[in-house]
Amino acid sequence: MVSSNEARAASQARLAGLGFTLPAVAWIVLFFGAPLAVMAVMSLLPLTADGTPPQLSLKAYRDFFSQPAYVQAIWNSVVTTALVVAISLLLAYPFAYVLATRVPKRWQRFALACAILPFWTSYVVRSYAWLLVLAPTGIVNWVLINLHLIERPITLAYNPSATVFGFVHFFIMLNALTIYANLVQINPRYVLAAQDLGASAWRSFIAVTLPLSVPGMAVGAFLTVVLCIGDFITPQILGGNKELLLPQVIMMQIQRQLDLPMASVMSLVLTVIVAAVYLLVQKPMRSARL
């Protein structure tokens, strides 16, 4: 009798669990799984000149991987994203650390609000604003000229560095938020214990705080990869088309030819890269045991 009740309770718990997870699963299937499947099918139906229904084929994949300029775009996207992640983390960490450990609690909220201010403006407007700042008549050149560091304006915008710069401005704050959220959860007694055992401040930071803040860095890095590698706006406005990233090549296929099969192939490549990065960082993201 008891075992029957337990079995019923377990069954009810399973049903309840299923009921709670079903909406999330349905959401993922509907808005992620299904579009991904459509994209995969689309990539196998190459464009025909006369609009007749195409035959299943790997032609779009062959066309993509046989174009060095398109393959180069993958490499450019990976390198740009890696740079943005590295620079954003390097700059965001000290900011988040000071905020979490040095700034009085009552000021932290204000500082965080200031930190997320850049998110309040339109992404496109922000990119064009950077263009004005970096222009020959912009403030950076004006300062450099007035400090007699340069004689004539130098080209700061319209190159890959400007793209990285624009990205970093956005993602530094995103990373600062994830790292800060992680740092404030670390039990301060761990550091005190390390110092009681004779570790210097630097040693206790390296041996205790830094490893414990890896999950925050991993989450920030992953979000940066997801948002950065698929972004079209920033490289298009700030990069001056001096080199192409994969989203720009995808837009080329859509804007002129409406070549959805080729665009699907490229989008799937992007998805594979993001999935690979996720596999790489999922362990550090889950390693928080505070």
Binding site: A69, N76, N241, L244
Partner: peptide, 9 residues
Amino acid sequence: QAMWAEVLQ
């Protein structure tokens, strides 16, 4: 279009 992509790269 492919040639233009090569020029941009």
